[in-house]
Nucleic acid binder design. Structure first.
Lengths: 148, 148
DNA sequence: CATATTATTGAATATTATTCAATTATTTAT
DNA sequence: ATAAATAATTGAATAATATTCAATAATATG
């Protein structure tokens, strides 16, 4: 046993997958070369960014999910993207968006547990420019990434 | 031309992909049979739920992204999951969570544009049990689903 | 309407996943 | 501690799949 699983999870989260052309061809009753051609075109056009695995986050020790609503300090209203891009570098952040309304940024965060989340908040969200954060902790994830 | 692309996008959003075992084997310097064995085990254990494509949503006409914060009417506090599961059936909903704090549910929604979003809100969010909704429209998606 | 470009497709080939059997490592029970 | 049982690793063989290629058809362009 080499404990290869964490490495595999990390790879499969980022990509390292590929479409099942033959299976899609059978399902759609199209020749596999037609499916191949169309998918490769979408890849070239950058419509498809990657192929990746979707995990049961409970089962891989990433079960704690929160949404953070962020208010920037007035001096940073001009470039919320700068702060969002810095935050995006953290692997715990699954998605981050610049938004309208009472907050400037919303981030979706995955950690092992409340403890790891607390450490993340201390480390990542204490940066200058962030005035206030509101955490919405997920009790139950009913649907994730289009996969029920 | 058969206009097969929308069908392919729908399939690849749900799954119909597979890990690249040989490529992962080369990258990790492990035998491909070891990679195969480990990944199949994770599938059996249901740690891996699916393999799917990640799209550039702007380019496939799903560029409008919003987060909806939902307040339930007092009578529904007991079972937010019931409402969340009904909403989860809509293909426009990428994710939906039961949360703590000032709202009971948060949903992430993808539509073509504001117009389609408005139609979705009228259709989906007018159901009994939902008392109030707050929409946070995404101006810019800095990071999505772990893919930058 | 003619020409250029893009899309479709079957046949051949290259690559890859999968199966299998043998070996090694790890866990469990006594 | 040791034996037995279970789980994990691996190379070789096979089955399945992706990819390339060349020919044809459809569509777009001027």
């Amino acid at each position: 046993m080499k404990g290869i699983e964490p490495e595999l999870i990390e790879l499969l989260k980022q990509g390292w997958c590929t479409p099942q052309i033959a299976r899609i061809a059978k399902s759609t009753h199209e020749p596999s070369t037609t499916i191949h051609y169309n998918i490769k075109r979408m890849e070239t056009e950058k419509k498809i960014k990657a192929y990746k695995a979707v995990f049961d986050y409970q089962k891989i020790g990433q079960g704690f999910c929160t949404f953070v609503l962020i208010n920037l300090s007035p001096g940073e209203y001009g470039n919320p993207e700068k702060i969002a891009k810095i935050l995006a570098k953290h692997e715990q952040i699954e998605s981050i968006d610049i938004i309208t309304g009472d907050w400037e940024i919303i981030a979706k965060i995955r950690t092992k547990d409340q403890n790891e989340y607390y450490e993340f908040v201390k480390k990542a969200l204490s940066m200058p420019g962030i005035a206030k954060t509101t955490s919405l902790v997920s009790f139950r994830q009913i649907k994730t990434e289009f996969v029920s």
